[in-house]
Design a protein around this nucleic acid. Structure first.
Length: 394
RNA sequence: GCGUCGAUGGUAGAGUGGUCAAAUACGACACGCUGUAAACGUGUUGCCUUCGGGCUUCGGGGGUUCGAAUCCCUCUCGACGCACCA
């Protein structure tokens, strides 16, 4: 599965960041070598309002297809997101209303456009699956579902897992793959791109297309960004890496990636040629990665600035120029001011930080010992290892 | 409809009248070490506090008790079994 010669765009398209291709890489390659232009898509369920680094993998791949002249559809799953893909193991996802999913998707195009072009020569097309799923009658839906069998759907790992554990599967979850599968039919695509974890749903689309349209849909799965334990990167609770994060935050968050993931990130998230992907000094490599990603999502200047801020703050331990600022009256309790300004969520959190020497007065260059310290003059604080706050007295 | 079991903190999962703000694990946060990250070690992990303690939590409501996550009633939701229907 190594790229043949550099410069062969088709080989790169078929291998870089790619997990598998169905029915086979060779079959797809043959079609592409014939010069045929394909109609393809990837679906994004707007369960949240921001696209994150995981979405970027797919966007990169779509952009690559686009560059080679294929017609790319950026599909918003405004309807499918209401049910939720039952990919989370146990609990069913919270059900969203259509208003919520549309609101979530509001800025998707803008965020995606950092990677995928919606204007110019061969613009990507944005579609909403509510446009067809919303028009289906119950009978029509069941007729569609009739093209797939119970055993085909229930075969899914996750369903099997749940059954084994005596967990339940709601009928809506059970039918989710049918909805997603129908997207392929409604758009009459030639190929679908998606994360490896979407393989099952995409294969359902393949089966449905074969049955309803007598057409073979190709499926391309992309590798996931995982650490060595198989935990998805950049998706920790409340800490997801959004594509529209501020450059220096983005830089910092990437620097917090596990070292082992860096090569994979280069492959899946950047345009650096495969043979140039560095694999020597982990720190330098990761900085390069962070730089590239920030650059591509913003611009080179911002990337350089972000890198500088990061180096100064975390390597040279300098006090950053820019930091959060709060105003307070002299005599106020510092803890109260921080909670009031939502720097901290509670005074207990402050107490813990002080007890654990996690709060520093940068003017005095010492940890704060007294949790009940009152504000008497301007203060510069370091809270934890990455939060800096300036307190001004009025 | 009947019956049985179940619902505990971010998650998983102990606890079955006081010693329970609730074991343990994971996660999260902080500190130390350090090249970012990790690994490793330590500490913290409901809220408030004059640091004595106080207050609110174990699906919802009500009750028994000096005292309830723990017992009783009821409601909601779920699993399983039976019945009904076919």
């Amino acid at each position: 599965m190594k790229a043949k010669k550099s410069g062969d765009k088709i080989s790169e398209l078929l291998t870089r960041g790619v997990d598998r291709i169905y029915p086979s890489k060779e079959a797809l390659e043959e079609v592409l070598r014939s010069g045929k232009k394909l109609r393809l898509y990837q679906g994004f369920d707007p369960t949240g309002s921001q696209l994150h680094i995981g979405h970027m993998v797919g966007l990169r791949k779509l952009a690559e297809w686009q560059k080679l002249g294929h017609h790319v559809i950026f599909l918003i799953g405004d309807y499918t997101a209401m049910i939720g893909d039952p990919s989370g193991k146990l609990s069913s996802r919270k059900v969203l209303t259509h208003e919520e999913t549309l609101a979530n998707a509001k800025n998707y195009k803008e965020q995606a456009s950092k990677i995928l072009k919606f204007n110019g020569d061969n613009p990507a097309e944005m579609l909403f699956n509510g446009d067809w799923l919303g028009k289906l009658s119950a009978i029509e839906f069941l007729q569609i579902a009739g093209n797939l069998t119970y055993s085909q759907v229930i075969e899914r790992d996750m369903f099997q897992e749940r059954l084994k554990q005596g967990q339940d599967i709601s009928t809506s979850e059970f039918l989710y793959p049918v909805m997603q599968a129908y997207d392929s039919v409604a758009m009459n695509v030639d190929l679908e791109v998606g994360g490896k974890d979407q393989m099952f749903n995409m294969m359902m689309g393949r089966k449905l297309m074969r049955n309803m349209l007598k057409k073979e849909k190709f499926v391309m799965t992309t590798k996931l960004l995982e650490d060595k334990d198989g935990v998805k990167i950049g998706k920790t609770e409340g800490n997801a890496i959004a594509l529209d994060d501020k450059p220096k935050d983005l830089f910092g968050k990437i620097m917090a990636f596990p070292d082992e993931a860096v090569v994979q990130c280069f492959e899946s998230l950047t345009l650096i040629p495969m043979e140039e992907i560095p694999n020597t000094d982990p720190l330098l490599n990761k900085k390069r990665l962070a730089f590239e990603i920030v650059k591509d999502l913003n611009d080179e200047k911002k990337a350089r600035e972000a890198q500088e801020v990061w180096e100064n703050t975390f390597q040279k331990k300098e006090i950053p120029d820019e930091m959060e600022e709060v105003k307070a009256k002299a005599g106020e309790l510092l803890s109260e001011v921080l909670v009031k300004n939502k720097i901290l969520s509670s005074k207990s959190e402050w107490r813990r930080l002080v007890l654990g020497k996690g709060a520093h007065d940068l003017e005095k260059k010492s940890a704060i010992e007294d949790q009940n310290i009152k504000i008497t003059e301007n203060l510069t604080l370091k809270i934890g290892k990455k939060r800096f706050v300036k307190v001004f007295t009025l």
